[in-house]
Design a protein around this nucleic acid. Structure first.
Lengths: 252, 252
DNA sequence: CAGTGGTCTAGACCACCCC
DNA sequence: GGGTGGTCTAGACCACTGA
């Protein structure tokens, strides 16, 4: 029992569970505990460090949060990696803020139909020639008539009945679907490319001089990997600016 | 004691701490516990729910992880918000992967100097006319001579001595600085805009037909908010594509 | 079915904050 | 100094996993 409080007097002021957590992390980093293998059980660690189970569990929670291990009831603490990936966090109130669509824009629908979309927009999304609900529209600054971008939204057929409610309210379409069908976006994949502005969009946005556009495509996925909505926004290049802020998480 | 296990028999199979956590979250959402106020103490909650302190602490940990409250030793559990911001996580091994610079590129330095940068690159960064270490270069595909983008890197004067080590190794500059000065990036702010390719860059990249470029600027901040490095990369628009994947965190 | 991690109890002492 | 949350102990029962 002499070293129960060793952490405080010797190395400064670390708590027991932190010292143990750091030691275990060191062992993983040094390959003493191999990736793919299983850590000693809680009981064994209690013995080795002469401490209570709760303390060991707190130490293991550190490793879990940092991404080193995964714990499975009945199975053990599995070592996932010796070099966990950094996690950078994007804080948002809603996905709308992924772009600046938050509250200051409105969406004007030009056309709604049910058809097979052009391939370029659904590359690597829908395996075949399924029909999607296709909404063409224009996004404007609220209370002004200044256009921001030309928009196409594709909705998976399973949720196509949302078409009836597109004119009401002001929120984003993906959000209306979330509410109506009680589903949740689990992942978003966004890509940004440069294209030439389609004729149709150029006309509406009154851009005759510069036909370069920034195309931002976002795919909204459910937990099972299903793409339930794809949005494609085309911005005049001369007005495009996109900022994102990533904060490093934890202290890894 | 009749309801110690009530969570299991009545509502399905939730654990006590989850039920309590959900109840507390409900109260915050409904405004029963106001934002800015302080939650009942652990002891009071133990009494109300007739349970042990550990169980209450586990419930409060749920709320903490979800961003509803912040706990301060000696002060209490402060309600931060009734609608916590969603957290979308960007998984990366390193920040290099924020772009696809991982391992398949090399950086050729054309010029290194110490000067006051043009304002356009440091808008809202350095309050004044401080001198920065300015590195001009070109990023190429590894083992090929295909240029990817034209690069400018600005290094805060405090870390300018990194200049001596720029030619060695292959990693990103920010990483060399992290190692040499034992500091850690805490946040990255990235913005993407469309510009015309500067003459200099256009010549090097042999782009005479299309002078539109995508400019990606990244500011690397320390925990105290200091910008220690700014990188500006200009890509020929016709080859530019940027994909990011955001995963919703937790089950909020 | 033996062993693992998950949950929970009922205590205790401590560091820290605020009065 | 009184009260808060943070850490820690020494037990217990349970759910789940895998041989």
């Amino acid at each position: 029992m002499t070293n129960v409080r060793a952490g405080k007097s010797e190395t400064g002021k670390l708590h027991q569970y932190m010292e143990i957590g750091n030691e275990l992390r060191r062992r993983i980093t040094l390959g003493q505990y191999l990736v793919g293998s299983i850590l000693p059980t809680e009981g064994m660690l209690c013995e080795e460090f002469t401490t209570s189970r709760h303390t060991i569990r707190e130490a293991l929670r550190m490793l879990t949060d940092a991404g080193f291990i995964e714990r499975r009831q009945g199975s053990g603490s599995h070592v996932l990696t010796a070099v966990p990936s950094q996690r950078y966090v994007h804080d948002m109130w809603s996905l709308d803020q992924l772009f600046q669509y938050a509250v200051d824009t409105r969406f004007i629908i030009n056309d709604v139909k049910f058809a097979v979309p052009e391939n370029s927009m659904l590359s690597d999304v829908s395996g075949g020639k399924a029909e999607w609900l296709i909404v063409h529209g224009l996004r404007l600054e609220r209370d002004e008539d200044i256009p921001i971008c030309f928009s196409i939204v594709l909705v998976n057929r399973d949720y196509a009945s949302i078409a009836e409610e597109l004119e009401t309210g002001s929120g984003a379409i993906y959000r209306k679907i979330e509410d109506k069908f009680d589903i949740k976006v689990s992942q978003v994949i966004q890509d940004i490319t440069i294209t030439t502005m389609p004729q149709r969009a150029a006309l509406v946005l009154d851009k005759t001089t510069l036909d370069v556009a920034v195309q931002v495509r976002r795919r909204y996925l459910l937990a099972d990997g299903t793409v339930f909505l794809v949005s494609v926004n085309q911005h005049p290049a001369d007005e495009f600016s996109y900022t994102m802020q990533l904060r490093r998480e934890g202290e890894n």
